[in-house]
Design a protein around this nucleic acid. Sequence first.
DNA 1: ATGAAGAGAAACCAAAAGGTTTCATATGCC
DNA 2: GGCATATGAAACCTTTTGGTTTCTCTTCAT
Lengths: 132, 132
Amino acid sequence: MTGETYDIFQAIADPTRRKMIRLLAGQELPVTVISKHFPISRTAVSKHLRILSESKLVNVKKVGRERRYQLQPEALSEVKEWISYFEPFWDNKISKLQHYVEKEESSEIDPPGSEGDPGEEKGGFPDLTPPD
Amino acid sequence: MTGETYDIFQAIADPTRRKMIRLLAGQELPVTVISKHFPISRTAVSKHLRILSESKLVNVKKVGRERRYQLQPEALSEVKEWISYFEPFWDNKISKLQHYVEKEESSEIDPPGSEGDPGEEKGGFPDLTPPD
DNA sequence: ATGAAGAGAAACCAAAAGGTTTCATATGCC
DNA sequence: GGCATATGAAACCTTTTGGTTTCTCTTCAT
């Protein structure tokens, strides 16, 4: 009843689907029109759209006999958040700014500059068993 | 001579690789140790690491007979930037803040709120042919 | 009502992905 | 030298993925 789901990281892994997402930014389009932009069959496009739909990246709206696909970019926040976990570990100046602007909680992350010489960790590694 | 490359979106599509990335955040580890954290063979881990390496997400440092793998999270900026293209289209409050904080150029994007009734675009769609 | 247009479902296929086991090579240690 | 450790390469296998063609179902227009 809940409907299928599809991992969003996998959803955006395919270049064709990324192009579709771009195409749908700001405009909602029916399948036939979308497929005009790609060198593959309409059916193939339809399957990609189903995957995007199952990953909550797009929304379908029935209008007459057509189905208008609409981007739901909020679904990307999962990816964005996943990435933001690593921002404290990189040196891009922008990311440092964001670190202060956008983070409320700075817990659970080893901030860079606090590594206790990673040279000799042979015996006991922190078994992070990370959430993802 | 340039070495193989691997699409970073595909690199992070695999859950096992995402866990590896998490594991390598803040610490550099050799293959054998990394493989202790996964229910797959060391060789399989090695192949994942090669993919991460080819997508510039990790760096290898030879130390004696071991290869220490080190995270290079900057590679994620490509993904981050790709996502940021869509932030003007969603309503998350944080993203709006970022829109001002992080963008130098706000060109080439239809800001949300400027849609001219998407109901009747039947004839001429802007052929975006987007960069990705 | 009848035919054309829009779209998903089914069945099928080739290639890519993720794993495994086995083999080869380099380095460390006595 | 000779053996154990660390790791990648090769060959191989199975499942997933992206695509196709064909078929069916709706809905619009005449």
